[in-house]
Design a protein around this nucleic acid. Sequence first.
DNA 1: ATGAAAGCGCTAACAG
DNA 2: CTGTTAGCGCTTTCAT
Lengths: 336, 336
Amino acid sequence: MADVARQAGVSVATVSKVVNNKDGISPSRVAHVRQVIADLGYEASLGAQSLRSGRSGVVGMLVAEFEPFSTELLKGAALAIRAHEYELLAYSGKGMSGDRLGWERRHISRLSGTLIDGAIIVTPSGVDDRFPTPVVAIDPHLGTSTLPTVKCDSYGGALEATAYLLSLGHRRIGFLGGRADLQSSKDREAGFRAAMADAGISVDADLIDEGGYQPDLSISPTRKILTLPADKRPTAIFAANDLSAIKVIEVAESLGLRVPDDISVIGFDNVPEAALFRIPLTTMAQPLQEMGARAMDMLCDLLAGNDVVKNVTMPTTLVERASCAPPAGHIPEDDS
Amino acid sequence: MADVARQAGVSVATVSKVVNNKDGISPSRVAHVRQVIADLGYEASLGAQSLRSGRSGVVGMLVAEFEPFSTELLKGAALAIRAHEYELLAYSGKGMSGDRLGWERRHISRLSGTLIDGAIIVTPSGVDDRFPTPVVAIDPHLGTSTLPTVKCDSYGGALEATAYLLSLGHRRIGFLGGRADLQSSKDREAGFRAAMADAGISVDADLIDEGGYQPDLSISPTRKILTLPADKRPTAIFAANDLSAIKVIEVAESLGLRVPDDISVIGFDNVPEAALFRIPLTTMAQPLQEMGARAMDMLCDLLAGNDVVKNVTMPTTLVERASCAPPAGHIPEDDS
DNA sequence: ATGAAAGCGCTAACAG
DNA sequence: CTGTTAGCGCTTTCAT
């Protein structure tokens, strides 16, 4: 900016006013300064600007990793932000080894005040909710009470997914849970258990395990469930998210089981990979992009000082594709 | 920081030294200040810090959009950065309507100096190469001469992809090109033409069109090619990237053509979607994550003041899946 | 209509 | 060892 001022023969204050479209500068000077700015390719430094003015016009989205789930959310948020006068930057939790818990708090503290005016955190690692800047959480942690949150109806979705499997005729149904510290994971297991209870079926503890929402962590528990003796082995598995479900299918096939002939698999999320998978995955869809968009709208409302609904729960939808079928030898009931 | 200083009964300079692990502070004071910092949950402001010190410890990755291609690159870059003492943030080009060309230059100017120490730009929209900070380009623009770049061997890959189709027995092969302003797109078309020329087959102009690397833009040109009279219609199509190839398959099926029985389709990139697609896509793989990682390593080298190889070209690999087969009625040649 | 000066939160030089 | 001082690039009074 000093360069621009010198080159244009004016003070930095004048340049600043031109840059910020303040009035009180003669039109001829404005034009001249604009010209010099263009010639020099000058752009105001975001950091300095917001250090001084206390506003950056940028909001951050913190994700632990760039995987399909957070990427869909990101797409939705990026789409929604067009309607607002903010820019979006995504920050990934990087190594964050050692300080797993609450890394988002530390990062937000560091970024807020000079870099971002607010943030969206995806599947937070901790309950921390005292942030120095407006924050909206998507798929919140257990007990994240005071933060505005966006989530899907995990309980209802799990209930419906399980009911669907039951309606197909399955009775021995396995459940591969998510990350124990997340609300969504708890709700999905609760929904599963409720549906089973409603059907009067007791759930065998051997058929329930946890994959942490991660493919890698899902292999061993899945193998354990699928290598049970044939009479104890489930005819269907409900995986708490799509990436786990896909891994379940891969493990099943590696064990010589055909999907859906020998075993049905239903997922949760409906990430793009679910539809594209070789055996198109039947799954409970979350409106991921809408959720990202909704969170962004809420954040912008918060930033505008408006009141916002604190907790938004979006509906899930059953998407029937090819990974589920009635169990082998099942005769459908005749309702006529 | 002022709060911390007051609370700890020391000067801000002392706090700064503690924060930055400078020596010259008595161990007892260090411990005390550390305690206060922890109590207050204080984190230094990135903007102010780097405004003063001229270094932020953060590098940016600028992408036009979060789609599979850039996301894979992002994953690779995120992985590679763990070995360096930098953090990664991703910036998406947002609306960038109106100023399509060179938006990355404007953003980088704004971010550099206070926010990022360097950047990776993905499929840049312009030839601009005068950046105020170290920059590495992935999949560069035509004529981006002075910037260090990372790309794959698009020419060789296209040559091999086309040769593969020819080896299957195809003779009428269509080509759906990418974004005309990118080096990769030009190279892929050149590779395609070279392979056809090598085989002594003249390419029909009706069979060549452009999809801009985008599914949406690929629909109409694909339909035009596939609705040619049966004797002019190609038996195979080479699409310049996977997302276009998938769209080609969808259009083909909507026209009643079966893939690969009636028409073979080969893509380029090998994004995750290619493997997951209902008809697993045969494609020329780029080592996307490695490319992202390589670009990050180059950038970090640049930042360290080391010399770097200016232009890295990574090899491509044919990945045979299910979307290609010999043309109908083709009798394979007997080489015995 | 314009510029001088103060200060945002921080670090680096220098004094003590 | 510790505090004082200056100033990074910018915006914002407040004089002129």
